Simulated scan of single mutants.
Amino acid sequence: MIYRFNNEDSSNGFKVNAADQKAYSGGDFKGITGKLDYISEMGFTAIWLTPVFDKEEKGYHEYWINDFYEREEHFGTIEVLGGSLA
């Protein structure tokens, strides 16, 4: 789950509430790409991300999608992952 894994870009860390299990906790795309070596060192050759799309507020599992053409604003830009949603 992106929003729980690792936060490397504090600029998108608005509405963070670590005390609320259903609220955004700070992880982002830079947090994922910044830990790829760490993930690889554990022996993993692939990762499966939860959806990156705009989701309902407090849609903690990230599967309550609002718009499949927009990324979740808390995660940063999709270009950080090397792609686009189009």
Results as ranks from 00 to 15, higher is better:
residue 49 L to M: 09
residue 21 Q to C: 11
residue 76 G to L: 11
residue 24 Y to L: 11
residue 68 F to C: 02
residue 78 I to Y: 05
residue 58 K to R: 04
residue 20 D to W: 06
residue 58 K to Y: 10
residue 3 Y to C: 12
residue 36 L to R: 06
residue 86 A to N: 10
residue 39 I to L: 13
residue 49 L to K: 06
residue 50 T to A: 13
residue 38 Y to D: 15
residue 83 G to V: 00
residue 36 L to F: 09
residue 29 F to R: 05
residue 44 F to I: 06
residue 1 M to I: 10
residue 10 S to I: 14
residue 59 G to Y: 05
residue 61 H to Y: 03
residue 77 T to Q: 05
residue 22 K to Q: 13
residue 49 L to R: 03
residue 47 I to D: 14
residue 56 E to M: 06
residue 25 S to C: 02
residue 71 R to V: 12
residue 53 F to M: 09
residue 85 L to P: 09
residue 25 S to I: 02
residue 32 I to N: 06
residue 39 I to Y: 05
residue 57 E to K: 02
residue 24 Y to W: 09
residue 61 H to I: 07
residue 39 I to W: 03
residue 58 K to S: 02
residue 50 T to P: 05
residue 41 E to S: 15
residue 69 Y to M: 02
residue 47 I to M: 12
residue 81 L to R: 08
residue 49 L to C: 03
residue 22 K to G: 15
residue 29 F to P: 04
residue 73 E to F: 00
residue 57 E to A: 07
residue 16 V to G: 02
residue 68 F to A: 12
residue 20 D to F: 04
residue 75 F to N: 03
residue 49 L to F: 03
residue 67 D to P: 11
residue 65 I to H: 07
residue 19 A to W: 04
residue 4 R to V: 07
residue 26 G to Y: 06
residue 71 R to E: 08
residue 79 E to T: 12
residue 56 E to W: 07
residue 62 E to S: 10
residue 46 A to F: 12
residue 48 W to K: 12
residue 83 G to S: 08
residue 18 A to F: 04
residue 14 F to N: 13
residue 69 Y to C: 06
residue 71 R to Y: 00
residue 20 D to N: 15
residue 80 V to Y: 04
residue 46 A to Q: 13
residue 19 A to M: 11
residue 26 G to H: 05
